[in-house]
Amino acid sequence: MRCPYCASDHDRVVDSRAADDGRAVRRRRECTACQQRFSTYERVDHAPLAVRKRSGSIQPFDPDRLHAGMQKATANLDIDPDVVRFAAARVEAHLRAMGESEIGTDVIGGHVLEALRALHPVAYMRFASVHKVFTSADDFARELAALDDDRLPAGHDPAG
C-alpha cells in the first residue's frame, strides 16, 4: 500500500477492525518513512455477474434490483424488512456460488420464488404471477393448488 502523503510503500498496520456491518475491514496504517497515519478498507471484490433477459439481451446483475423485487412482493405483509434483505442476500449468494458469469432470469426467478415460498404464500403468489407471466385466473388457481400441495405434510391425503 502506498502512503498517500509520501508515496512510500512501506507501512505497518496499527489497528484493524470490521466496518460496514462486517462487509469490510478497516485498517489503520502508519507509514514507516514519514510516520503519517491513514486508513484503508478491504472489501470482497465479486466477479462480474450478468443477467440474460428473456429477450436475449444481457445486462449487469444488480443486487438492489433483486432486493427491490422481493420488497414489492412482500409489501404490506407482516414480514420484517431485515428478513427480506437477508433472503435477497442468500439468493445472491446462491447465484454467485453457481460459478456462472451469465445467469438467465428464469434461474434467478426460480431462486427468488423458493425464498419467497419460505417467507409468505402471498409474497410467493405475487412474484409468481409476474415471473411466470400469469394471463388468467386459472393460472393463479393452478399455482395456488401447487403451493398448497407442497405445504401438505408427507403422507397427508387432501381428500380426507
Results as ranks from 00 to 15, higher is better:
residue 75 A to G: 00
residue 56 G to I: 09
residue 83 V to Q: 06
residue 31 C to L: 02
residue 52 R to P: 01
residue 37 R to C: 08
residue 72 K to M: 13
residue 73 A to D: 11
residue 46 H to L: 06
residue 31 C to T: 04
residue 28 R to C: 06
residue 66 L to F: 06
residue 79 I to P: 10
residue 62 D to T: 03
residue 56 G to P: 00
residue 77 L to I: 12
residue 76 N to Q: 15
residue 68 A to T: 12
residue 82 D to V: 12
residue 34 C to I: 05
residue 45 D to S: 13
residue 71 Q to I: 10
residue 42 E to A: 14
residue 30 E to M: 14
residue 26 R to Y: 00
residue 65 R to P: 03
residue 66 L to E: 02
residue 26 R to T: 06
residue 49 L to A: 08
residue 46 H to I: 00
residue 64 D to N: 09
residue 54 R to L: 14
residue 39 S to L: 01
residue 51 V to F: 09
residue 86 F to D: 13
residue 50 A to F: 14
residue 82 D to L: 14
residue 44 V to S: 04
residue 80 D to P: 01
residue 77 L to C: 11
residue 61 F to T: 08
residue 62 D to S: 15
residue 59 Q to A: 15
residue 83 V to T: 15
residue 30 E to P: 02
residue 57 S to I: 12
residue 84 V to G: 05
residue 60 P to F: 04
residue 77 L to Y: 11
residue 32 T to A: 02
residue 47 A to Q: 10
residue 60 P to A: 13
residue 83 V to E: 03
residue 75 A to M: 12
residue 55 S to A: 12
residue 54 R to V: 10
residue 33 A to D: 10
residue 36 Q to E: 15
residue 43 R to P: 00
residue 66 L to T: 08
residue 81 P to A: 14
residue 53 K to V: 06
residue 33 A to W: 09
residue 53 K to W: 07
residue 47 A to H: 07
residue 38 F to I: 06
residue 70 M to N: 02
residue 67 H to K: 15
residue 78 D to G: 06
residue 32 T to P: 00
residue 40 T to W: 01
residue 85 R to E: 12
residue 49 L to D: 13
residue 54 R to I: 05
residue 30 E to G: 01
residue 30 E to Y: 07
residue 31 C to K: 01
residue 62 D to F: 04
residue 31 C to N: 06
residue 53 K to G: 11
residue 62 D to G: 08
residue 35 Q to D: 11
residue 81 P to L: 11
residue 53 K to L: 13
residue 33 A to S: 15
residue 35 Q to C: 10
residue 70 M to Y: 06
residue 38 F to M: 04
residue 65 R to N: 01
residue 55 S to D: 13
residue 34 C to M: 03
residue 51 V to D: 10
residue 85 R to C: 06
residue 72 K to A: 04
residue 63 P to I: 08
residue 53 K to S: 07
residue 74 T to D: 02
residue 84 V to D: 03
residue 78 D to V: 11
residue 48 P to A: 10
residue 47 A to C: 04
residue 33 A to M: 10
residue 61 F to R: 10
residue 45 D to G: 05
residue 37 R to A: 05
residue 63 P to H: 11
residue 83 V to K: 12
residue 32 T to M: 10
residue 69 G to K: 08
residue 80 D to Y: 00
residue 43 R to C: 09
residue 81 P to M: 05
residue 35 Q to M: 11
residue 66 L to Y: 09
residue 73 A to I: 07
residue 37 R to F: 02
residue 77 L to D: 02
residue 73 A to G: 00
residue 37 R to V: 07
residue 61 F to A: 08
residue 27 R to V: 06
residue 47 A to M: 09
residue 46 H to A: 14
residue 67 H to Q: 12
residue 42 E to K: 03
residue 52 R to D: 05
residue 48 P to E: 14
residue 55 S to Y: 04
residue 63 P to W: 07
residue 30 E to W: 05
residue 65 R to G: 05
residue 83 V to G: 01
residue 44 V to Q: 09
residue 64 D to E: 15
residue 38 F to C: 04
residue 58 I to G: 01
residue 59 Q to H: 04
residue 75 A to C: 00
residue 33 A to C: 09
residue 65 R to F: 11
residue 39 S to D: 12
